[in-house]
Design a binder for these strands. Structure first.
Length: 118
RNA sequence: GCAGGAGACCGGGCGGCCGCUGGGAGGGAAACCUCCCGGAGGAAAGUCCGAACACCACAGGGCAGGGUGCUCCGUAACGCGGAGUCGCGGCGACGCGAAGGAAAGUGCAACAGAAAGCAAACCGCCUGGCGGAGAGAUCCGCCCGGUAAGGGUGAAACGGUGCGGUAAGAGCGCACCAGUUCCCCGGGCGACCGGGGAAGCUCGGUAAACCCCACCCGGUGCAAGACCAAAUAGGGGGGCGUCACGAGGCCGGCCCGGCCCAUGCCCCCGGGUAGGUCGCAAGAGGCCGCGGGCAACCGCGGUCCCAAGAUGAAUGGCCGCCGCCCGCUUUCGCGGGAACAGAAUUCGGCUUACGGGCUCCUGCCCCA
RNA sequence: GGGCCGUUAACUCAGUCGGUAGAGUAUCUGCCUUUUAAGCAGAGAGUCGCGCGUUCGAGUCGCGCACGGCCCA
C-alpha cells in the first residue's frame, strides 16, 4: 500500500451511512463547506462527499468532489481516532478557485480534528 | 481592403511526483502488492425522432388516438440525408419552406364598412312616374326599378388594360394579358417543364380550425430482464375434469368478441426483500485502394488503426518546459488568459451551447 | 434513466372557440373620522419567460430554447 491511498474501504458507500450522519452528530461549518462526522464503526476513517445540483452543472460538481477527495487522501492520517465524515459543499463553492477550496478544507478538517480528539 | 456565403477540420503538446479505475499476468491464507495495456465529447448535453436488445400483451376485425405529408433515390430505420421540382428572400455567392386537398362538408373573420361569401344598393350614375320651382334650358324632393364603371372602409370587396356597346352600366361583346379546367404534341422514372388548342368568363382567405385523402405506428424501458441468495413471515404455483348462464372480474385506449368463476382430483416446492453476479463493451466502426453512382450511399479487397465501462459512481491534484492569444516593455523579459462542457445499455440522426484557424466562392472599392 | 406540469401587474391567480389583457391583495390620491383602522370613490402599473414561424391579426396555434417544480423505478 502506498503512503496516501484512497481505496473503497475509505469511502462511505451506503445510503445508510449518509443517513446516520445526517441525523444526529456534530457538525463543522465554514463559508464553503459543512462537515458532518461521528466516530467510525470500522477501523478506517471514511469520507463521503455531497454536492447537490444546486451547486452547479456536472463539470463544476465533479471538480469540487475531486478536490475534496484529494485533500482527504493527503490528510486522512491526521484524523484520529477513525471517524466517518460527510463533506457537503455549499452553493457558493462553485465560484472559488482550487487554492481557496484547499484552504477551506484545511480549515474545516482542522475543526473536525479538534472536536474528534476531545 | 471591406462586407458576406458555403464546405471540411482541430478542440494544446512533452515530462516528473502523488493518486483513482477496467482488463491481463504473477505473488499472497487474506487484506493487498508488483508489472503490462487501456481510461470523456464534438457536442458525452437537451431527450426531439428512429432502431438494436429485453420483458409484457397479442385469434381476428372495427373504432378511437398519435405521427408524417412536393418527387425520386439512400438507409436496419427515421420526422434523417442526397439529388431535383415549385414558391419566397437576396445585386450575388447562396439561403429558407409542415410544399397533399378549400369546384366533399362544417366553422371562423374583431373594429371599420352599404355589403365579409347561395353576394350586396350607403353615396353616386341612369330610364320612367308623381309633386314643386322656373319664360325656358333645367333644377329640387319623393317613388317603382336598373346599374358593381366611380367614392369611401378594410388584411381581404367577385380579374387587369383598351375599344365597342348602353338610358346608365356590366365579360354584355371583341383584342391582348393573368388565372382555372380539359385535350393534343414533345422532354423527364417522377414532382414538373416547354409548345399548341378549346371552353367558360373568373369560380376569394384560413386545414400550425374541425376535417377529408394517402402512408406509418402494440406497450414499457437496462432501475428492461436473467441468475445466486441472508434475516423475517408462512404460503405459493401448475395441470385435468365437472358445474355454470349473469351480478362481478380480466383481456394494459375502447367495442364486437373471448376468458375466469362454485367446486373436485392430481402433481411440484418454491416465491421473494436486503445484498451479490450477469446483462456490460469486438462493430449497421474508422482508414486506404478498386469499382458503381451527379450525390447521399453501396459492393469487393486490404489494413489490424481504434474500440472507457463506474455503481455514493473512476478518468484527478501539484509542478516544470514548449506552443497560441492579450497587456506592459525598444529588445531581453514580466504578468495574465485559454471556450462550451463530464460517459451511465448501445447505435443512427436532429436540435441547442461554444473557441480557433483553413479552403473555395460572391458583391463593392483601390492599385498594377 | 424515463415522464408530466408551470412561467400573465409588486404578490396570488383568471383569460372558452385566435379579435382592444382582467380580478383580489398591496401602493398612491380624495371623501368620511379628532386621528388610525374599517368603509366609499378613483388612479398608477404588463417585452403575457425568450426566439422563430402560421394568420390580416398570437397570451391563445406550431416548432426550438431558458428557468422553476413534481412524479416513477
Amino acid at each position: 500500500m502506498g503512503v496516501f491511498p484512497y481505496k473503497k474501504c475509505h469511502r462511505l458507500t451506503r445510503r445508510q451511512d449518509f443517513v446516520r450522519l445526517s441525523h444526529r452528530g456534530p457538525r463543522a461549518e465554514n463559508s464553503w463547506f459543512i462537515a458532518a462526522f461521528r466516530p467510525a464503526l470500522g477501523p478506517e476513517t471514511r469520507l463521503g462527499v455531497t454536492v447537490t445540483r444546486k451547486v452547479g452543472c456536472a463539470v463544476v460538481r465533479n471538480r469540487i468532489k475531486r478536490l475534496v477527495r484529494e485533500y482527504f487522501r493527503l490528510h486522512r492520517h491526521l484524523l484520529s481516532p477513525p471517524h466517518d465524515v460527510n463533506v457537503i459543499a455549499k452553493a457558493v463553492a462553485k465560484n472559488a478557485d482550487n487554492a481557496t477550496l484547499f484552504a477551506a478544507l484545511e480549515d474545516i478538517f482542522g475543526r473536525v480534528g479538534k472536536a474528534a480528539s476531545r
